[in-house]
Write a protein that binds this DNA or RNA. Structure first.
Lengths: 144, 144
DNA sequence: CCGTATCCGATTTGATACTG
DNA sequence: CAGTATCAAATCGGATACGG
């Protein structure tokens, strides 16, 4: 298990750089980044739009479990932040196409890294959760 | 930054079929990863603990805005998932030290990438938000 | 087809007070 | 110092119905 960061294949090919300088001060915008994408559906939409642009109902079918309300809200929020673009074709019946902006694509990169982490360590997390049910193993160090 | 969408690196490199939502399958553990760390404070705690271990009140002062309740909840959740370790020194008065587990350190890698993204694009996002107040500029394409 | 509006329950968060 | 308990508010998210 100690082979945690032996190789990071995708985006982070370098060794954990001194990113996030002065954590206390600089982490606030980072927290904002998480909250705008940390809701139930945002990251899913970004990832799906990462492959190609989709129409509204196309997204609705792809996600399969999202309500119209939340899909619209999510898209509007991503649009407000400049991550997703919206193009309305004045046909009849109307058709609306959503796609990632360049900014959205740049987000896709660290997003994929985090998604990758979740997939690779899914088992370890569930093992830890199972291990912690019923027996809290808070390590107590001896007084010297 | 135009090298972003040349290829979606890891899990998302395959095409999304219209009928079978493979994105849902691939993104569900990823979605879990986001929800685990996507709450208001988790990633902040992980990043701060990434530099060194901290005591409870040390964290409380570093974050400055978190309530005791949320700090405790966040730490317990991270502990349950095996991302954070907790060591109790039986001194008087008591002192509790929190630190990142190896699994937590591995999470720190993609987390830093996302935090980095948030810091680098903070200005662009706020510009987009400001641009969208009052004037919705949905792009309408001409009918052919 | 692409939404918006309303109602409603579930979850999250904060403020405050209290304890070993 | 390091938490826990309780209450109230805000937000999230889904179902349904309706409109352009």
């Amino acid at each position: 298990m100690s082979a945690a960061h032996t190789d990071v294949p995708s985006v982070l090919s370098h060794e954990l750089p001194p990113s996030v300088p002065a954590a206390e001060l600089a982490a606030c915008p980072a927290s904002d980044a998480f909250r705008r994408v940390g809701d139930k559906w945002s990251m899913l939409v970004v990832i799906i739009l990462g492959s190609r642009s989709h129409r509204y109902n196309e997204l609705h079918r792809s996600i399969e479990g999202i309500s119209q309300r939340m899909l619209t809200r999510t898209l509007r929020a991503l649009e407000t932040d400049g991550l997703v673009g919206r193009r309305v074709h004045p046909t009849v019946p109307p058709s609306v196409e959503y796609s990632l902006t360049p900014l959205g694509h740049s987000l896709l990169v660290p997003l994929s890294a985090l998604a990758d982490w979740g997939i690779r360590h899914e088992g370890e997390i569930q093992a830890a959760r199972h291990r912690s049910v019923g027996s809290e193993a808070a390590q107590v160090v001896e007084a010297s």
